[in-house]
Structure formats: structure tokens, C-alpha cells
């Protein structure tokens, strides 16, 4: 009798564990679309088709390193992040600062995390992650394949209506 109730409790425990695990690993709540707009200036915000990329990749960790609870792929991250724990910080900008070299950040660097000393800034985190993979798998790699240039962008790059007028002869000396 005692044994049976013990087994029942253990069984329930195991079931609950499975429920928690499956919720965190396989039925994760993620947005189908993400508008990446925090840095938009020279280009329009990127409307990122998250659902398509979830289908196209084998694991969340391909982009999200060690934060989504799936097994860590990057060997360097895996040196410390061995577990499969979902973290509160999942989006790029939760960890990658837009301005890590501001005078304040340079004079008061974040303590600890000595292995995070070479962390790309937010803009680079996006581009290195997206473009790096696109180059490998043959995805689109042109700037305007992902985001359309704004008027400010045309002005900055001297393109479009701000393009230099055709010179009569080369301006080289």
C-alpha cells in the first residue's frame, strides 16, 4: 500500500517534470514576426519573419546561443552554459548593448563575465548573426534585401536622388 502510493507520487512527479520540460523546450511561446526597429535610421525597420526562420533552422541555439533552453551549439558558449535553462533575456538587445563604447561604458565596464569581453554591439550582433548565416546557407546578403533605405540613408550614401551628378571627366588628379 505504502509502496503503491510512493510509486504514484513518483509517477506524478515525473509527469509534471515532463510537462515543465516540454513547455520550455518544445512548446515555447515565440512571436511569428518581429519588427526590429530600435536602430532604424538609414534603413527602414526590418520585419523579421521569425516563424520562417524557426522552420528553417534546426535549433533555437543557432541564433539564441544559450538563452532559449535548447542545447548550446557554440563550443565557446558551451564551456560554461552546459544546462538547458531558458533565460529571461532572449532578444538580442537584452544582452547586446547598442552603444558599448560610450564613454560611460568604457570607464565603468560591466563587472564579471570575463568571457563576454568581446561581445559585439547590437548592430553587429544582428548583422554578424544574420549575414554570417546567410553567407553560409546562401540566403540574401544585399543590404536592401532585408531593409529598404530611407531618405536619410540615400542622403548618407549619396545614392538615389542624392547621387553625384555624372562628372564631365574623372575627378582624379
Amino acid at each position: 500500500m505504502v509502496n503503491a502510493s510512493k510509486q504514484l507520487i513518483a509517477g506524478l512527479g515525473v509527469l509534471m517534470l515532463f510537462a515543465v520540460l516540454s513547455a520550455s523546450c518544445y512548446a515555447m511561446d515565440y512571436p511569428d514576426e518581429v519588427e526590429i526597429d530600435s536602430l532604424a535610421n538609414l534603413y527602414e525597420p526590418v520585419v523579421f519573419d521569425h516563424a520562417m526562420h524557426v522552420d528553417a533552422t534546426e535549433s533555437c541555439a543557432e541564433c539564441h546561443h544559450h538563452t532559449t533552453g535548447t542545447e548550446v551549439i557554440n563550443e565557446y558558449c558551451a564551456k560554461c552554459h552546459t544546462g538547458t535553462v531558458e533565460m529571461d533575456a532572449v532578444s538580442c538587445q537584452d544582452c547586446h548593448s547598442a552603444d558599448p563604447v560610450s564613454p560611460e561604458n568604457l570607464h565603468h565596464p560591466k563587472p564579471g563575465y570575463s568571457y563576454h569581453n568581446d561581445q559585439p554591439n547590437l548592430k553587429a550582433a544582428y548583422h554578424l548573426n544574420c549575414l554570417g548565416c546567410h553567407q553560409e546557407v546562401g540566403g540574401p546578403t544585399g543590404c536592401e534585401d532585408c531593409h529598404v533605405k530611407t531618405e536619410a540613408g540615400d542622403k548618407f550614401y549619396r545614392s538615389g536622388e542624392f547621387a553625384p551628378k555624372e562628372p564631365a571627366h574623372s575627378s582624379e588628379h
Binding site: 550614401y157 549619396r158 545614392s159 547621387a163 553625384p164 562628372p167 575627378s171 582624379e172
Partner: peptide, 8 residues
Amino acid sequence: EPAKPFDD
């Protein structure tokens, strides 16, 4: 101004 746009 450059001779060509910067995205060229």
C-alpha cells in the same frame, strides 16, 4: 561629394 555613390 564623391565621384560615385557610397553604395556603388
